[in-house]
Design a protein around this nucleic acid. Structure first.
Lengths: 111, 111
DNA sequence: AGATTCGGTAACCAATTGGTTACCATTGTC
DNA sequence: GACAATGGTAACCAATTGGTTACCGAATCT
């Protein structure tokens, strides 16, 4: 809710498998376009267009480094998706437990 | 991972704002098609088509009751989306805490 | 049985999507 | 300065989407 229209359309951006693959690929750190595109079957401009959608959705950031453009994850907008799903969590309580345990294992002793 | 191709395409199903609205509308319990459609600007067949997509994605169930079809939420496939987003959570740690607190307040004393 | 209601599907249409090739601006190298 | 590398954008195209109207089957009510 902080920055009003922060996300142009995160749900739409994330709906495409290629775009999710791009995000997944960026998970390990910044990647330049050429290197990114090399990992896909499609042409470089096609990847560029996907990157644009991701940029518009604020899911990635573009850093100009020399003559390359390095793309990096900025997945904060996914919070919107997560928040929306949150209200459906009550329908699968089992997963609640495992998530809780997951969080617990990260923090150890809180309560 | 359990049932292999359980979801035809949850991400796609959820990408459309109307379909999300339908799911939200179903949040309170089962609703028949006519009543559902009344809540939207578009025609009844248009809603029917959205329902089909949601059905294919296993996000809703259709119960025939008399001559009505009552639709109900079966949002388990959203777990796939949630799981995918999970790996990006590390990028916004603040939310981790609040979620944990949210879970804690719901269960109170576990272990 | 006949009429009515409920809702899925078919046929169709305009707009959008995801891909292509061609072109261009910018940056780095010789 | 000339040339190569990098990558965004334009123009175009086929396939998909989201909507419409028309039709039809199934269930309910006289």
């Amino acid at each position: 809710m902080a920055r009003a229209r922060a996300s142009i359309d995160v749900f739409h951006a994330v709906a495409d498998p290629t775009r999710r693959a791009i995000l997944d690929r960026l998970h390990g750190g910044g990647v330049a376009v050429a290197e990114l595109a090399a990992g896909f079957e499609m042409s470089r401009p096609a990847v560029s267009k996907h990157l644009r959608v991701l940029r518009d959705a604020r899911l990635v950031r573009e850093d100009k480094e020399g003559r390359q453009r390095v793309y990096r994850l900025t997945p904060e907008p996914l919070r919107d998706v997560s928040a929306w799903i949150e209200s459906y969590r009550s329908f699968w309580p089992a997963s609640l437990m495992s998530l809780k345990r997951h969080l617990e294992s990260g923090k150890e002793s809180s309560r």
